[in-house]
Design a protein around this nucleic acid. Structure first.
Lengths: 220, 220
DNA sequence: GTGTAGTTAAACCATATGGTTTAACCGTAA
DNA sequence: TTACGGTTAAACCATATGGTTTAACTACAC
């Protein structure tokens, strides 16, 4: 059945080395800025072999990006599948999103490049993950938990979609803007655990105080 | 003193046409993806004249980006200079940030490209604007207003830097991720006034309920 | 040994790229 | 008239680019 094949990815060992190399180069330079020659060099092989494995730059880019985003978002979503408790959901969301971003800062960079060029690959991958899969799609579950909490009077009524955007925005912003922020505000360092823990607390407090129902009834 | 010169930008009429053209092309393709030939064509001139005005692609890119970011952020910051009232500050910030982003969506795209390549230009421009200028630098003013509000008991104590990041993140996220979000959540349209007004309300409510001091003392 | 997949070096190809140079043309100011 | 800056078309240059082809070499499977 042919030579040694790694079942994991569907590519042989060399194919994987190429994907790794391509990841590094695309990450650093983006699709337009990357050079096939550079990728081959990074993988320690020559152009001929590179094209023996991947027809074109386009192909390679799509594979790299799809793999990267799929792994990240699938993992993320699995770690925050809502249990029904809104407070735990918010806390887990913030916790997991920030932890995973800090452990995979490349993902943000890939997303940045992608969005720059219209994001066709990311749209596909993320759309599939957020709405598809087995069981209750993740967004549906999130939305239900928020709705239930509002109906039961634990939180005030909020639009779940906007709450989601707010959570994501607050978590991802510091990573996205890191190259700029770290130059403008010394002390901002997205690889510093202390900073990130503080960021988590600040986000959670803002959101939780921001949505929970007030204890003593409401006044004007 | 030479031919007709537009004093506004320091470039002649042709120079401005080139800058406009370059803006369009860099916006669409990023620095690496842009072609000098394409920029010349967009400006309706030939390559020779293009290089007669701008030595290199690098030069042109720096000028375009600096101009774009300077105009946007200077305008933004002037429109939200804090008056001392924290509630008004939060409301104005959200209002102006979202309005200006929706009127200048290119800026987000430029920032995206910039951040992708490490953001050296943006870091300079934004750093200068946020901390420099006449009078009290804007971040200082923001931070003071938040601090005063906390000391006077109007809001609970919050870290002004993190509050700022949260505000920016919530406002900018939908614009940044628009190409992806619009594919994943039909109905998300950052050029739709209704959507943006709702977004503003949701952000303001979350933040304001999230930071204001509770009326009836606190409980466990 | 023969065949086959993986691999290499190197030449090759058509086209693109950023940038320069040259010669000429045009309108206006001196 | 002359001089000059803005402008053009076109050729030119060195290098880079994505991608292909060829011939040969290696290790392992049969």
């Amino acid at each position: 059945m042919g030579p040694v094949i790694e079942k994991e990815t569907g590519h042989g060992a060399t194919g994987d080395r190429i994907l790794d190399a391509a990841r590094v180069v695309f990450l650093e330079k983006g699709k337009a800025g990357a050079r096939m020659h550079g990728i081959a060099a990074q993988a320690g092989i020559n152009k001929a072999l590179l094209h023996y494995y991947f027809r074109s730059k386009e192909d390679l880019y799509r594979e790299v990006l799809t793999k990267e985003l799929t792994v990240f978002f699938r993992g993320l979503i699995e770690s925050i599948r809502p249990s029904g408790d809104i407070e735990a959901l918010v806390r887990d969301f913030i916790d997991n999103y920030i932890d995973r971003l800090s452990r995979n800062p490349q993902v943000v960079r890939f997303l940045t490049w992608e969005v720059g060029s219209g994001g066709p690959v990311a749209r596909n991958v993320i759309g599939g993950i957020v709405h598809g899969g087995e069981g209750v799609p993740i967004y549906r579950a999130f939305s239900n938990t928020v709705g239930d909490a509002a109906r039961s009077g634990r939180i005030r009524p909020v639009d779940p979609q906007h709450l989601l955007f707010s959570l994501i925005g607050m978590c991802i912003y510091v990573f996205l803007a890191a190259p700029i922020l770290s130059g403008v505000f010394p002390g901002v360092d997205t690889s510093d655990k202390t900073f990130l823990e503080k960021r988590k607390r600040e986000i959670f407090d803002l959101v939780w105080y921001g949505i929970r129902a007030e204890k003593g009834g409401n006044d004007g």
